[in-house]
Amino acid sequence: MNQQQALYKYCVGLGDDALIQSYRLSEWCRNAPILEEDLALTNFALDMTGRAQVLLSYAGKVEGAGRTDDDLAYRRAERQFYNHLIMELPNGDFAFTMARLLFTATYEYYFFTELKNSADHDLAAVAAKTVKEVKYHMAHATDWVLRLGDGTEESHNRMQKAVNELWMYTHELFATDPDVAMLRDGNIAVDLAVVKSAWLQFISRTLTEATLAVPADGYQQTGGAAGIHTEHMGHILSEMQYLQRAYPDATW
């Protein structure tokens, strides 16, 4: 893989994270426990769709084959998606969604804070905007993890279960590979070791404050960077890409 291909994959991965996470959050719209949460989660989904649009459109430019953001979102097959697996897991209950959002938004906050210093000016610009957005996502998720962790016995148990189930999907966020290492050398990609240490510190502190146990590390799921997803991914794409696939000649 040359540097251009590595950069394409890096941008697509970031775009896919936003796209797939947005898909999951948008499923909460009309299904949230209070109207205020319908609005908040829809709003986060909107931020993320916007981010996906910018990143996929940039990825298309880097690739140089004339593919647009929509081509990449709606006409790629499952094995060409590079999002982290945690993004595609089904929403579960509200505790599961909030625990996931805490994990991903905290990761994104520290990740994009680092990416602001990227030698790639387009990525640095996206990062500057994204940091402001994900700060809210992170604060919102933190509030809910505290409320549910330290709320009632039922909410505590649900939250602890969610944290435990999600833990094996968190390490993938910090896994690096030779392609990313190449971009690191050019000061384009982020040093994930820095992100991981800040993430772990914040998450441990938040879980402890929420009276929750920080899970022990065990078996870790990976595969997103190789385009090997969970079984859930195919269902997301078959729904998301339905109109573009069923009416390939149409514009919308």
Binding site: Y23, L56, Q244
Partner: peptide
């Protein structure tokens, strides 16, 4: 909301999300 996950383009999805968010806000 029935069409959010099937909106046919990123722009269409953003417009629909924003619209439904507005409706919820009107409810509030």
């Amino acid at each position: 909301g029935n069409w959010i996950t099937r909106a046919p383009s990123l722009r269409a999805k953003q417009i629909l999300l924003a619209k439904i968010q507005d409706e919820g806000g009107h409810g509030l």
